[in-house]
Amino acid sequence: MAAAAAAGAGPEMVRGQVFDVGPRYTNLSYIGEGAYGMVCSAYDNVNKVRVAIKKISPFEHQTYCQRTLREIKILLRFRHENIIGINDIIRAPTIEQMKDVYIVQDLMETDLYKLLKTQHLSNDHICYFLYQILRGLKYIHSANVLHRDLKPSNLLLNTTCDLKICDFGLARVADPDHDHTGFLTEYVATRWYRAPEIMLNSKGYTKSIDIWSVGCILAEMLSNRPIFPGKHYLDQLNHILGILGSPSQEDLNCIINLKARNYLLSLPHKNKVPWNRLFPNADSKALDLLDKMLTFNPHKRIEVEQALAHPYLEQYYDPSDEPIAEAPFKFDMELDDLPKEKLKELIFEETARFQPGYRS
């Protein structure tokens, strides 16, 4: 834990890192770190609560700039109880001085990944967590956004079992017609939660990839272990087919990539493993919904509104309290091709509203 900075004593240090967030945020305490930044909790002297502050230093890398800009653009436009918001952003007053960006968010005690390492969940908890994931996802999908990296560590939890989806750095506007060349190379989302079509096709992607990830998360809540822990690309596919069985001819016809289709045709026939054999203690309604989410063919996979209306979630289902976005989200430009200098300018502009004396 960093010592509390005395008023006016300059930035606090946390594990050798400068955290320049005073005077409003003090009493910093280390939480963890990701690929390009550290997260601390801090005391907000204005709202009198502890908050989470993520320090991001992305400006050396085009990919990190892209992810940072995506996350900020999306989260500043989203407003939903099951999606983490941005409360404040701290950065230098000029673009030349801006080396880091500090993002202030609600402090959540833990995440689903940490929880599943230590606790076996009751059916009631599984049901409530799944409902909140789908409630947040309904809003995301209504904005025409794909999260693309749903996994237990991106689901934040607090002691009252509130759940918030975080990390929109890989999110995209849904565009089933656009052929994202190089899709697989830039697709760094965790393999275990990846839909089979991501490994088999490169053309376009749809909201059904997020539903697949939610199915993987439900299976993990039922058993405290990942359902498809593939060691590499082909191993991942083999794990999936080992449980779902061989795809039907109709399902194979959806695979545009001939090499991928021929690979699947070359494999020995596998039978589907019954879900109640894998999860003998699970609620039968939970397994019915799991089956509809972990469907090989993305066109037959359940959609988020149908999933919310499934009998497993009937005690929570309330369409009048499951809000959607006001308007579909649009990125003005494809960020993939922009140089990091341009992305830095866009991050600077996007964060201006939090600067003292800002006038829109």
Results as ranks from 00 to 15, higher is better:
281 N>V: 11
190 T>K: 03
321 D>Y: 00
111 D>M: 03
67 R>V: 10
246 S>Q: 12
150 L>D: 03
183 F>T: 10
199 M>Y: 09
207 K>A: 07
57 S>E: 11
66 Q>T: 12
210 D>H: 06
61 H>N: 05
121 L>G: 07
148 R>H: 06
93 P>K: 12
148 R>Q: 00
353 R>A: 13
201 N>H: 06
264 L>Q: 00
338 L>H: 14
288 D>E: 00
334 E>W: 15
47 N>D: 03
202 S>L: 02
134 L>N: 04
92 A>E: 15
67 R>N: 15
286 A>I: 15
199 M>G: 03
247 P>H: 00
46 V>Y: 15
278 L>K: 13
14 V>W: 08
216 C>D: 04
188 V>I: 01
306 Q>L: 01
205 Y>L: 02
225 R>C: 03
17 Q>W: 15
292 K>M: 00
291 D>C: 09
252 L>K: 08
312 Y>I: 08
357 G>R: 12
227 I>D: 08
201 N>I: 00
131 Y>H: 12
177 D>H: 07
280 P>L: 05
322 E>A: 00
36 Y>N: 00
135 R>G: 12
252 L>D: 12
195 A>M: 08
333 M>P: 06
129 F>K: 06
221 M>E: 03
194 R>C: 02
181 T>E: 05
67 R>Q: 10
359 R>C: 15
86 I>G: 15
70 R>G: 07
204 G>K: 06
116 L>E: 06
332 D>L: 09
21 V>G: 09
298 P>R: 04
10 G>H: 13
213 S>A: 11
130 L>F: 10
61 H>A: 09
328 P>A: 07
241 L>H: 12
40 C>G: 13
237 L>N: 04
65 C>L: 05
214 V>S: 06
71 E>M: 01
76 L>G: 15
287 L>I: 12
271 N>G: 13
119 Q>V: 09
165 I>W: 07
323 P>T: 03
253 N>Q: 07
70 R>N: 08
88 D>N: 01
308 L>F: 14
223 S>E: 05
194 R>H: 03
324 I>Y: 14
239 H>A: 08
342 K>D: 13
224 N>R: 06
245 G>W: 03
13 M>Q: 05
124 D>K: 11
240 I>L: 02
179 D>Q: 07
2 A>I: 15
352 A>Q: 07
25 Y>E: 03
272 K>Y: 10
223 S>H: 11
232 H>I: 11
181 T>V: 10
323 P>C: 14
299 H>G: 12
340 K>C: 11
187 Y>E: 04
88 D>Y: 00
197 E>D: 00
224 N>F: 07
143 A>F: 13
116 L>F: 08
38 M>P: 02
155 L>E: 06
213 S>Q: 04
101 V>S: 05
125 H>M: 02
46 V>W: 07
28 L>C: 10
145 V>W: 05
120 H>T: 12
279 F>W: 12
244 L>T: 14
339 P>Q: 00
78 F>M: 13
350 E>L: 15
295 T>E: 08
252 L>E: 10
117 K>F: 10
210 D>T: 03
352 A>N: 12
261 R>S: 03
29 S>G: 09
173 V>H: 06
158 N>V: 07
149 D>F: 05
139 Y>M: 07
288 D>N: 01
234 L>M: 01
120 H>R: 04
320 S>A: 12
131 Y>S: 11
356 P>Q: 14
360 S>H: 06
180 H>W: 07
248 S>Y: 01
149 D>P: 04
296 F>A: 05
15 R>V: 12
329 F>N: 13
276 N>Y: 01
308 L>G: 05
93 P>V: 13
335 L>T: 09
257 N>S: 03
140 I>E: 04
306 Q>G: 14
19 F>N: 03
245 G>F: 04
58 P>T: 00
36 Y>F: 01
65 C>V: 09
285 K>Y: 09
33 E>M: 15
234 L>G: 05
65 C>K: 15
189 A>I: 09
279 F>Y: 02
153 S>E: 11
79 R>I: 00
57 S>L: 08
301 R>S: 01
132 Q>G: 08
275 W>F: 12
11 P>A: 04
241 L>S: 03
170 L>K: 04
313 L>H: 11
48 K>P: 11
20 D>I: 08
72 I>P: 12
259 K>C: 05
194 R>D: 05
35 A>K: 02
63 T>D: 07
322 E>N: 15
6 A>H: 13
281 N>H: 07
126 I>V: 03
279 F>V: 03
123 N>E: 10
222 L>C: 06
64 Y>V: 09
22 G>Y: 06
298 P>K: 05
28 L>P: 07
326 E>Y: 14
261 R>N: 06
44 D>M: 10
99 K>W: 13
172 R>I: 03
162 D>H: 14
311 P>E: 11
233 Y>K: 02
41 S>F: 09
215 G>C: 03
154 N>S: 01
217 I>D: 03
222 L>Q: 01
13 M>G: 01
358 Y>F: 01
185 T>L: 04
261 R>E: 04
236 Q>A: 06
75 L>K: 10
244 L>A: 10
274 P>S: 03
222 L>P: 02
203 K>I: 00
77 R>S: 14
238 N>K: 02
65 C>A: 08
168 F>K: 05
286 A>E: 12
106 D>N: 03
32 G>W: 08
77 R>I: 13
92 A>G: 15
242 G>W: 15
179 D>T: 05
219 A>P: 01
179 D>F: 11
24 R>N: 13
319 P>F: 10
9 A>Y: 11
7 A>N: 14
175 D>C: 10
191 R>L: 00
73 K>A: 03
44 D>N: 01
156 L>R: 03
19 F>M: 08
232 H>C: 11
12 E>T: 14
116 L>D: 10
256 I>Y: 11
263 Y>K: 06
282 A>C: 14
230 G>R: 09
120 H>W: 08
213 S>V: 04
29 S>F: 07
243 I>A: 13
168 F>R: 04
223 S>P: 01
261 R>V: 06
